[in-house]
């Protein structure tokens, strides 16, 4: 504990770096998945291509991607862009599949009736399909968030791992406390991110909680009949 107070500046600085480097890929993944996921939802052919392509990228181990990207992007190996791009690729890979599933799950009769009452394609998307896909998108985004925060620490091996620095430094100095503090702070960031997403979901999609509880109630009733 004493170590933490003595090195508070370092830990806070690394935490901020960790937040920054992991928030960026999460946001990129979310924004990119909306058009990509919608295209995958609408067109069978591009869906297969998209999912295969991102599936392959997702399969590449992170450390391998961190090391490979510089020779593809022309960046220096210690440039934080490499880590951000790699994590963004993983985020998009998870989100595109999730978003396609989410749009698939919007009931067809709802979108058809929205068309029937006179929504244009664009307004129907933003006012009907996107909000109704929201709960599943959120669930996927939570997975991306927790994964990204955890995965970033591997980036310490290429100089950009946020709190991962404490793992390597603690390991080299044979000082478990430092490693433990790194783990705890990483977990705290993951939990805070998750709670922010859950909170945003409640504010933006007040109906999804009542739907979920109605769903549960229905299942209970069905189970006893």
């Amino acid at each position: 504990m004493q170590w933490l107070w003595d090195n508070l500046d370092l830990v806070v600085g690394l935490s901020l770096e960790h937040i920054q480097l992991s928030a960026l890929p999460i946001v990129i993944g979310f924004i990119a998945c909306i058009p990509l996921g919608w295209v995958a939802h609408r067109f069978r052919l591009t869906r297969a291509i998209q999912l295969t392509l991102f599936g392959i990228l997702f399969t590449i181990p992170s450390l391998a991607l961190f090391v490979t990207l510089p020779s593809v992007l022309g960046t220096k190996i210690l440039n934080p862009i490499n880590v951000v791009v790699a994590l963004a690729i993983y985020a998009v890979a998870i989100m595109v599949r999730g978003a396609a599933d989410a749009f698939d799950a919007v009931p067809g009769d709802v979108t058809r009736s929205a068309t029937a009452v006179g929504f244009s394609a664009v307004s129907r998307f933003w006012t009907v399909e996107f909000p109704l896909a929201g709960p599943v998108l959120l669930a996927n985004l939570r997975v991306v968030s927790v994964t990204t925060v955890s995965l970033l620490s591997v980036g310490a091996l290429v100089g950009n791992g946020g709190l991962g620095y404490l793992f390597i430094n603690g390991y080299q100095r044979d000082f478990p406390t430092e490693v433990m503090i790194g783990i705890v702070f990483t977990l705290v960031i993951a939990i805070v991110f998750d709670q922010i997403l859950v909170g945003l979901g409640r504010i933006l999609m007040p109906w999804s909680r009542t739907m979920a509880s109605a769903d549960r109630a229905a299942r209970r009733a069905g189970g006893s009949a």
């Binding site: 939570r142 994964t147 955890s150 620490s153 591997v154 991962g164 490693v179 790194g182 783990i183 977990l187």
Partner: peptide
Amino acid sequence: TSSFRAIPTFGLLLFIILF
């Protein structure tokens, strides 16, 4: 599944090895 996902494996491995 969700809590294990949050654990940074890299850190956990180094932590265990120190002991």
